[in-house]
Design a protein around this nucleic acid. Sequence first.
DNA 1: TGTACATCAGTGAACGCGCGTTCACTGATGTAC
DNA 2: TGTACATCAGTGAACGCGCGTTCACTGATGTAC
Lengths: 213, 213
Amino acid sequence: MTQKSASPRDRYRTHVRAEIKERAWAQIAGAGASALSLNAIAKQMGMTGPALYRYFAGRDELITELVTDAYRSLADTFRAAAADGAGLAELAHALRRWALDDPQRYFLIYGTPVPGYQAPDDITTIATDIMATLLDACAAVPAGGAETALDAHLAHHRGWGGSRPVPALRRALTFWTRLHGVLSLELSGQFTGMDFDPAQLFAAELDNLLASR
Amino acid sequence: MTQKSASPRDRYRTHVRAEIKERAWAQIAGAGASALSLNAIAKQMGMTGPALYRYFAGRDELITELVTDAYRSLADTFRAAAADGAGLAELAHALRRWALDDPQRYFLIYGTPVPGYQAPDDITTIATDIMATLLDACAAVPAGGAETALDAHLAHHRGWGGSRPVPALRRALTFWTRLHGVLSLELSGQFTGMDFDPAQLFAAELDNLLASR
DNA sequence: TGTACATCAGTGAACGCGCGTTCACTGATGTAC
DNA sequence: TGTACATCAGTGAACGCGCGTTCACTGATGTAC
């Protein structure tokens, strides 16, 4: 180790990088990820376009980093919610809060895929982390009820989920798909015009999940 | 009526319009809706860019028409599935087939929204049609079980759904969100790496829906 | 059946735009002696 | 403390690209008499 880092220059660098990302997020929130423009960000910051290449190798690297940050943020949120020894209900509400906090960030992870885009390895790793937190929370609840057809199928296709019991796998999947179903339709405005409260629908789905084994 | 239409020129016109749309769909399937380019389509057809303005007022009109067609296609599919007197199960399978047939078309309707985009009125109308078909199928099944908290909420917020019984509303919503949850995660490749069969998960959710009142 | 005219599909040039990215450079900030 | 040098943030010009869109036009196809 030649240096203890945190020189003034380093701090400045870190700061500018952070500001670039902030503006990038603002742009995404405003017009979606495909509208992200390096030149526009630079202009906002009172710089010229090429200056950003001191901080990111290019547009692709910026986007990849934003996606990674999004995943990491959700993973942290999940871990924090689970760490309190709290259960599935807290996980669900944490997810909802996180999603409503920045819908486009949610869609950056769970939204319409760009055909042909392959996520880098570290993202896959973080995604697995998120799933693991969910799986653990599910495994903490004792299973009950008869074995379902899906259980039988999962028993033979468990390359994921580690050594956790099959009902935990099934419940985690169900948790995920059901909450995503409500959330994504809500965030994309599909309920607009129907005057019920999406939160009530979300709560109903959650209750249903908690009641079933 | 001055004319019986279907002159040779009219037929040619219709044909070219159709080909433009076809190529547009191919482009969307390949790289998402934001990648749609008039010039590229023209080039593929051996024409120059401006020629397309004989057929569409511009890029926006083309996209709007594609979106409208997507909605109409789903509405037709739904209506056809329901017309046979068949129930929710057939509706579900029709939806799944329609979605798998062209994932980007599904996402054009239910995917990540473009912030600030407001759908034209006729689209809203068709969306209501789709919902009506689903609602009718739900209303055809007699309700059972106790009134839920969601029922109570819906009873006070029923600007949509016409005069159908509240449990039908609840079941239609649940049908929609749950199947969308599985479908959208499957289509966006989120299950990749977990080696179970998404069709089994879909079937399990459907069974669950059919079993519950 | 033939001629005069109208319709309209498609061209090619042009406009203006913003994009990502490269490159040689200036000038300020930091480091080493 | 002062001088010589290295680092590196940011500039400005430039490249090449593809985009949507307009406009005046050519030439083929259809219609009317």
